[in-house]
Amino acid sequence: MFSFRKKHASRFDSDDIEQQEAKIQELRAALGPLSSSGKKYCTEACLRRYLEARNWNVDKSRKMLEESLKWRTAYRPEDIRWPEISVESETGKMYRASFVDREGRTVVIMRPAKQNTSSHEGQVRFLVYTLENAILSLPEDQEKMVWLIDFTGWTLANATPIKTARECANILQNHYPERLAIGILFNPPKVFEAFWKVVKHFLDPKSIQKVNFVYLKNEESMKILHKYIDPEVLPVEFGGKNNVVYSHEEYSKLMVKDDIKMASFWASDTKTDHVNKVINEHSVPEVTQQSSLVAAKAS
């Protein structure tokens, strides 16, 4: 009698650090040569996020990341500046909070009832600008942000057009994977349920699992909010003790300063890419530039 033992391919353990590192290196090799800005974007933390988004499948992660690099080259999210989209923020419908969550992560506050424009492109670029700014503000040891969405006063008249909602969902999921830690939908009205059923079709299961419905008059649901954000820093309208109020004038000053930080962060890479393009036209190998210590924030 002969005994045949079936060979099994080694299974990937997502909790095994060594296996994770091997996948990250495999993905980096699969990407091939990158531009200077591409190198800055594709940090280890960035590669890890794309791998997590595709269940550590290197080929799928590579395709996803390559699409993001193409999108960033065409859309230039890092070049959007406050004066271009400031009108979108006049009512305080979306902004980076002055406080952070219990883990030090950036909190983005959204108030859809304060919608003040009808420009599809303007609203999409405003979202991208806010995301880039929130990422730039993350501590070096953090990769994700918290969304706090206040539905006070919201009606279907304030609902984002399906076309805009679809594009925003596409950008969020395909080009900012694993950036959302938790999403708090605060006091959504009954009528929102119908809109949510439509929007859910644009979201992946992972994103849906991160969304929590919280109601001010429901103590149990408020515990979810307090788990992530200390009531001492939470604004009064969210049931906290912080009397902070959005000021468009003050926020604008902050964003102008952040625009300088953003420009400074990417400027050297823009110059290097231009120089490398000229050099490559003369068949000289590309010059490699050291990545910045804050590169993980941009990716």
Rank of each mutant, 00 (worst) to 15 (best):
V214P: 07
K206V: 15
Y215N: 10
K241A: 13
L234P: 08
E232V: 10
K210M: 11
V244H: 10
E219S: 13
V214T: 11
H226Y: 15
K210P: 00
E237Q: 13
L225C: 09
D230S: 03
L234Q: 07
P205F: 09
S221A: 10
N212G: 00
V244A: 10
D258V: 00
I208M: 06
Y215Q: 08
K217Q: 12
E237V: 09
E250C: 02
K257G: 01
E220F: 01
I224L: 12
P205M: 11
N218T: 04
E220L: 09
K206H: 08
F202G: 09
L254Q: 12
E232L: 02
N243I: 06
E237A: 03
P231Y: 12
L254G: 05
F213M: 13
I224N: 04
Y246L: 10
M255G: 00
D204G: 13
S207M: 15
E219G: 00
P231F: 11
H226I: 01
E250P: 00
L225W: 06
L216W: 00
N212Y: 15
P231R: 10
H248E: 12
L203P: 12
N212I: 02
E237C: 06
P205I: 08
Y215M: 06
H226S: 01
K210D: 09
E219D: 13
I224P: 04
H226G: 01
E237H: 12
K257Q: 15
M222D: 02
V236Q: 11
P231V: 11
L216F: 05
E220S: 09
K241D: 13
L225M: 12
S247C: 07
Y228S: 11
V236Y: 03
Y215D: 05
N243G: 05
E250Q: 14
V256L: 15
K206T: 14
S221P: 12
P235K: 03
E237T: 09
S221R: 04
L203N: 05
K217R: 13
Y251A: 06
E220M: 10
K217A: 12
I229F: 03
E232D: 14
K206I: 14
M255S: 13
E249K: 12
I208E: 11
V236P: 00
E237D: 14
V256S: 04
L234A: 06
Y246S: 09
S252M: 03
S252N: 06
K210A: 10
N242Y: 05
D258M: 12
V256I: 15
E220I: 07
L225G: 04
P205A: 13
E237W: 02
K227A: 07
H248R: 06
Y228R: 04
E219P: 00
K206P: 00
E232H: 04
V244D: 13
N218I: 07
L234T: 05
Y246T: 08
Y251E: 08
K217F: 12
Y215L: 07
V211G: 02
F213S: 07
I229R: 01
N212D: 01
K241H: 15
V233G: 03
I229S: 01
E250W: 02
H226M: 05
F238P: 08
K223Y: 02
L203I: 08
H226W: 13
I208Y: 08
S207N: 02
E237P: 00
D258K: 13
